[in-house]
Design a protein around this nucleic acid. Structure first.
Lengths: 191, 191
DNA sequence: GACAAATTAGGACGTGCGTCCTAAAAATTG
DNA sequence: CAATTTTTAGGACGCACGTCCTAATTTGTC
């Protein structure tokens, strides 16, 4: 029942490295050095580099799902839940400043590589999209809930991209404030 | 005085390929096939792959500068000039849908690679930033002109990222409409 | 402690990459 | 047309990569 912990270490290290320096640019040697195992040992746990990527994506999907569930469980008001989403930009501001958004940058890279797992990476976006859509519906915006979800996702992506390009942490805080105001303004339009 | 046209062809093909499939993933063979020249011939025109990247960035910088100048020359009102900027998302929607924003995706990639030319790529962002900043100042928003410029840049980046992830062209049009409304609302706050 | 299974180490293999070198071809000049 | 420079072609080189193979080691079981 208990999985080998080495596999988890590999996925964990690959997750971090794929985020920090990109999937293509990360080699087996990089991951091996991080996990402190032999390069040949990989192929006992994974058949290929692509399989590691799939494992990383699946773990990110699982982590995201549980985070969304938690936000939903810990907050009864949909606006507070959405604020949780916005808040992750503040919580992860250090890494965003350096590496951008892990969801957006992976999606962008795999799309350019036309990689087989690009659909899996975009599934991460869909996870947030449908969750946010549901929250906006609960907020009384049934008609344009998905539009609002996409809008908020796009705003977040843009913040991450520019914060990373200019290494500007204050910009993140500023935009988060604007987004919270935008959210507060939305509530007044409840039906 | 007249430069060899081969060099221009190389830069042109590299520009296109770097945009479509990323810098790292584009090899000399790819460019050579596009330009129809021998692989060894590159090193007469460029000493390294990085040098081609610099040439591509410099051309993009020059093209951007002339585009900004033209928008400024053809429109007397700053709001109309800003609308020109927003409008490029419509004009380039086909490519954005497939490959995202050329500025943002290159900046993201070079940042992850920690490439020496990442500063040059970010200079493209700065070009738009300072130009937009100036337009917002002319619009009477002296106090928060740079903030508005960054905000608009971020919104554009987010739109490109999500449009590419979901291959959604309608989303681009939708967000452009919202951005134009946002811009129109700004004008009312003129001092 | 002997045996089997699971796990790891380390290196071999082929491929594609960026780079470099040299000779051929083309263009230019007198 | 000869001489010289500019431009191109094609392949060699070393290196790093993903992949694969096999032997050693560790772990678990009776």
């Amino acid at each position: 029942m208990s999985e080998s912990t080495t596999r988890d270490h590999i996925v964990e290290a690959a997750d971090k490295l794929f985020y920090e320096q990109g999937y293509e640019h990360t080699s087996f040697t990089h991951i091996a050095d991080a996990v402190r195992i032999s390069r040949g040992n990989f192929y006992y746990h994974f058949k290929s580099k692509d399989e590691i990527l799939d494992a990383v994506i699946n773990e990110r999907l699982a982590n995201t799902r549980s985070a969304l569930e938690q936000w939903e469980a810990e907050n009864s008001k949909p606006a507070d839940r959405i604020r949780c989403f916005i808040q992750i930009m503040i919580n992860n501001r250090d890494k965003i400043k350096l590496y951008g958004c892990p969801v957006g940058t992976l999606s962008t890279e795999l799309t350019k590589l036309n990689h087989a797992s690009k659909a899996g990476a975009n599934e991460l976006f869909s996870l947030y999209r449908t969750w946010l859509c549901r929250q906006f519906m609960l907020l009384g915006r049934k008609a344009d809930a998905d539009q609002l979800a996409m809008h908020l996702l796009a705003r977040s992506q843009g913040v991450a991209t520019l914060a990373s390009a200019f290494h500007d942490e204050a910009f993140i805080r500023q935009e988060v404030r604007i987004l919270c105001d935008w959210l507060a303004g939305l509530k007044e339009k409840n039906s």
